[in-house]
Simulated assay, not measured.
Amino acid sequence: MNETIETILKHRSIRQFKNEPLREEQIRTIVSSAQAASTSSYIQAYTIIGVKDPEKKKKLSELAGNQSYVEANGHFFVFCADLYRHERIGEWEETNVIPSLESTEKFMVAVIDASLAAQNASIAAESMGLGICYIGGIRNDLESVSELLGLPERVIPLFGLAVGYPEGISDVKPRLPMEAVYHEDSYQSDETTMKADLDRYDETISSYYHARTAGKRSDRWTVQMAKMLSGDKRMYMKEFVEKKGFNKR
């Protein structure tokens, strides 16, 4: 096993950072690593906003549900799906690109491109001894986030990435068993097998929480998922995405 794989397998979310900003060299390395990620048809349909302004970070923390580590970190990145520059390219090249930009396909391309870039950035940061935490909470109010960051039409903030020097290291959280996520040749939909895999995983997660919290918590993953998925959350998203000029066709 090489160092890269070891770094990937040791991933854990860090939610407490030292009061030490990243150096410009580190920021540039992380962004360069993000840009090295694969991109569909070379379209590079994303933009990364680095947020340094303390007031903006504080506001983003509030919008994300008062998550303190959105404000207190070494650097905060916001990854955006971005087709704005491509619309401008269409104008400059006198080519009608609007139907393509409004397609579900290009919406997916932009989201996937941004996600691939972000994961490259995360691995780069962790390989440098830094910790990271993805922040989906900025999607609580994308209208306000877009206004705060001055995002034009055809640019959607997807998630944040808090990066910094870890104040403490948490345990690696167990993932689903490989058999549950890796199927060969066809999807394995046998419910008996699936239920057995998830039952074993529930035992693993329950033990993990019990040990981590000294017995104060021992909930099962399937219970977590059922509870989380039973409620409506961010149901404004379709309207917002279409308003931004994405996913109309």
Rank of each mutant, 00 (worst) to 15 (best):
M108R: 06
V145F: 02
S68L: 07
D199A: 12
S32K: 04
A211H: 09
V97Q: 02
S68P: 01
M194S: 09
H183E: 06
L130P: 14
Y46P: 02
M128T: 06
S38L: 11
K57F: 05
T39I: 03
L83A: 04
E167T: 03
R200T: 10
Q224E: 15
E242F: 03
S32W: 02
E71L: 04
P99K: 15
F107T: 09
E20V: 14
V145H: 00
G164Q: 06
A45H: 03
L158I: 14
S170I: 12
V241S: 09
S189T: 14
I14H: 07
M225I: 15
A162L: 10
V172H: 08
Y46E: 00
Y182E: 05
K238W: 05
L101C: 02
R28V: 01
I49H: 05
Y42P: 00
G168V: 13
I123F: 00
G136A: 11
N73Q: 07
V155N: 03
L229H: 14
K238D: 15
T4F: 10
E55W: 05
L229E: 12
G90C: 07
T222C: 03
R88D: 12
F246C: 01
A45Q: 05
L176Y: 15
Y208E: 07
S127N: 13
H210W: 08
H86F: 08
I5G: 08
Y165S: 11
Y46M: 06
A117Y: 03
C80A: 05
D185W: 09
M237W: 11
M225L: 15
I5T: 11
